[in-house]
Design a protein around this nucleic acid. Structure first.
Length: 698
DNA sequence: AAGGCCTGGAGAGGA
DNA sequence: TCCAGGCCTT
């Protein structure tokens, strides 16, 4: 069963006598351990798939895990010779699990089952209103403070009591209001998806035991990224009870904890040992990714952090190429030079563009590289970027869906009723809002109530009522008719396409409409695909969230949309250089990596108004560690002696992390930059290659 | 006064 | 890229 695993991996897979922590160094095969352990539980230990949960942070990770499990278990059958019900496995994100719990237990947390999920933009809007300002920096600051409070399980009253200064006090007051507002809207934010189930389990043992019985073994991916709430949830579900022993495996790497600013805390690794004294710790130290030189540099850097667990990566790969450290004159020189070196390297190694990644600390650093790559017609892909679900047109449609599912969702009401415009403006909404406030009902309810007539002109009231009535009709039908039909009627009714072409220029409108259609199409597929059809799929899974969304009516579908991503359209994989932030590169690997802008102030990053505590430096160091360990075969590090800011140039120091890599004294960097302008150099190279750089689209 | 254009500056990001 | 703030219009 555990063939093909090394000793440590195999131990991690087979250990089931108690809680287990797998410290999986970079490139040590952690996903392998999780998937094999699931297979082991099912095949060798007689677990039913429905009793196992594997929890990740991203949809992408969840999907990848499903695929790997599917492949691993392909053709396997139960002991009775029946096909394994792999679909019943719970492989999903923390948030998706939270929603699932909340929908079923809504009554216990004072929500109706059709509660809405607000994304961060909606929440931003709420906080903006309360603060009465348009200062985005301030709003975002308050928003993240509130989020950190929530994730640290600090309630508003405590936050108010403990506020250390006027700003915090103000934020805490907003926090209290914000919680109350969400409640009035019958809505939750992303943080609530974890917090509410955790609080529920903590105070209601019956419900807790019910879920403990449903999910009997837990596997947690990227455990070092969990926050206080997620730990509580995990502990309450998998940490055992008077009826059952703890049953979980947490997989993570303390050296790759880079999400402290999002509330993740390494305390969770420490806590695991104190909360579970019999915790079995397995270290995976053999790296299957990188050459010895790269791993030694990574080890040397991370050795400067205080160690929670001592861990040293090793590899059976050869020494490999020396690591190149390249000082550059300024950021333009850096971009030109990196692109030049990359092209030359690719030519020498007969490699492909997709073998290369350029990694940087801050998103804006990508700009220059994009420029040069485009100019040289080298194809590239930018990691990250705006997600499909953040696009305005998708949010518009989602607002309608949310409103159909939950008429109390005021933000959705406002967005839907004003997009497209239908003769309802701010004045009408203000009157309606005041009225609703006094009557303590939602906007929707207020619009339908008696008494509102007196406050509004007939020509204001009329479109309001028309809108609400059409929503009521749609809601009725959404609960019974197929999603396809209802969606078509909705789109027909709101003239969305006409609105797009009216409100935007041709190009914009076209692209937005295309997105809209794609989204509708995706919804319809989700809504109509019958269970039986999914049976035949190779992986045995049919969606990215681990719960069956197929064949549901629109109402049910709408309730999970906020968390989903359309990963199923397999992203095309062009032969292109990858540009990525260090954060976004975690978990990925590339044969050849260029790590750029490795200077004091950038990596480690430092903001003027902020002091660099030890913990901050340590997280930056882990970021450097993540960067180094992305590389399989070659690693090129560059830093700029000078950078431009405003209209002056200032000089930079190489990052302390470069020194920490303890590279053997390299021979004086050979000058591979002849006395030519960068442009000429690239020209010369292309002449050398004789193919004009093999143009492709970026 | 309000609005469009340009220039400069910038942690990181998923549910 | 995106956002803000300054400056130049109307």
């Amino acid at each position: 069963m555990t063939h093909g695993l090394n000793a440590a991996q195999s131990e991690a897979v087979r250990y089931l006598d108690g809680p287990c922590l797998v410290l999986a160094g970079a490139g040590s095969g952690k996903t392998r351990v999780i998937t094999q352990k699931i297979a082991h539980l099912i095949e060798d230990k007689g677990f039913e798939p429905r009793h196992i949960a594997a929890v990740t942070f991203t949809n992408k990770a969840a999907k990848e895990m499903q695929e790997r499990i599917g492949k691993l278990m392909e053709g396997k059958t139960t002991r009775e010779g029946k096909r394994l019900p792999l679909k019943q496995l719970t492989v999903c994100t923390f948030h998706s699990l939270g929603v699932q719990i909340l929908r079923m237990e809504a009554e216990h947390v004072g929500l109706k089952p059709q509660f809405s999920i607000m994304d961060s933009d909606d929440c931003f809007g709420l906080i903006q209103e309360q603060l009465g300002t348009t200062d985005k920096k301030l709003i975002r600051g308050v928003q993240s403070t509130i989020s950190l409070w929530k994730n640290g399980m600090v309630d508003p009253e405590t936050a108010i009591a403990q506020a250390a200064n006027a700003d915090e006090h103000q934020a805490a007051l907003v926090y209290r209001n914000y919680v109350a507002t969400l409640n009035a809207y019958q809505a939750v934010d992303f943080d609530d998806l974890i917090r509410l189930p955790a609080e529920l389990f903590a105070r209601n043992e019956t419900v807790q035991l019910k879920w403990q019985n449903r999910l009997r073994y837990f596997l947690v991916d990227e455990y070092q990224d969990t926050n206080a709430c997620q730990y509580q949830l995990l502990k309450l579900l998998a940490g055992g009870s008077h009826l059952r022993a703890p049953a979980f495996t947490a997989v993570g790497d303390d050296d790759q904890a880079i999400y402290g600013w999002r509330g993740a805390t390494l305390d969770n690794l420490r806590l695991l040992q104190t909360d579970f004294p019999d915790l079995k710790v397995v270290k995976l130290e053999q790296n299957y990714r990188s050459t010895v030189r790269i791993l030694e540099a990574a080890n040397a850097v991370i050795a400067n952090n205080p160690k929670l667990f001592d861990k040293k990566l090793w590899s059976e790969h050869g020494m490999g190429d020396p690591i190149a450290i390249n000082p550059m004159n300024d950021e333009e020189h850096e971009a030109e030079s990196v692109v030049f070196r990359l092209s030359a390297h690719k030519f020498e190694r007969r490699a492909q563009f997709r073998d290369y990644a350029i990694l940087y600390r801050g998103n804006h650093q990508a700009r220059l590289f994009e420029q040069i790559l485009r100019r040289e017609r080298i194809p590239y892909v930018l990691s990250g970027g705006q997600s499909f679900f953040d696009k305005a047109e998708i949010k518009d449609i989602c607002a309608y869906l949310r409103l159909i599912a939950n008429p109390d969702d005021d933000p959705a009401f406002i967005r839907a009723i004003t997009t497209p415009r239908r003769g309802i403006g701010n004045t009408t909404l203000e009157v309606l809002g005041t009225f609703a406030g006094q009557a303590k009902v939602s906007l929707f309810e207020a619009a339908m109530m008696g008494g509102i007539e007196a406050k509004l002109q007939p020509r204001q009231l009329e479109p309001l009522r028309v809108f609400c009535e059409s929503m009521v009709r749609l809601a009725d039908r959404a609960a019974k008719d197929p999603a396809t039909v209802v969606l078509d009627d909705l789109m027909e009714g709101i003239h969305y396409e006409a609105y797009l072409y009216d409100a935007f220029d041709e190009r914009q409108a076209q692209s937005r409409w295309t997105n809209t259609l794609e989204f509708l199409d995706w919804l319809k597929r989700k809504g109509t695909k019958p269970e039986a059809e999914a049976e035949g799929e190779a992986t045995g899974f049919d969606n990215a969230d681990g719960f069956g969304n197929e064949g549901k009516n629109l109402l049910e579908l709408t309730q999970t949309v906020a968390l989903m991503s359309m990963l199923e359209g397999r992203e095309e994989d062009p032969d292109a250089v990858r540009l990525s932030t260090l954060h976004a590169s975690k978990g990925l690997e590339y044969p050849h990596v260029f790590l750029v802008g490795v200077e004091e102030g950038i990596l480690p990053h430092c903001r003027e108004d902020e002091d660099m505590g030890d913990e901050k430096i340590e997280e930056e160091r882990r970021l450097m560690y993540v960067g180094i360990t992305r590389a399989q075969r070659s690693l090129h590090i560059s830093w700029c002696k000078k950078r431009k800011r405003a209209r002056e140039t200032y000089s930079c120091e190489p990052s302390r992390f470069i020194g920490e890599m303890k590279l053997e004294e390299a021979p004086a960097p050979k000058d591979d930059m002849p006395a030519m302008s960068p442009k000429d150099r690239l020209g010369a190279l292309k002449a050398l290659l004789g193919n004009g750089g093999k143009a492709a689209q970026g």
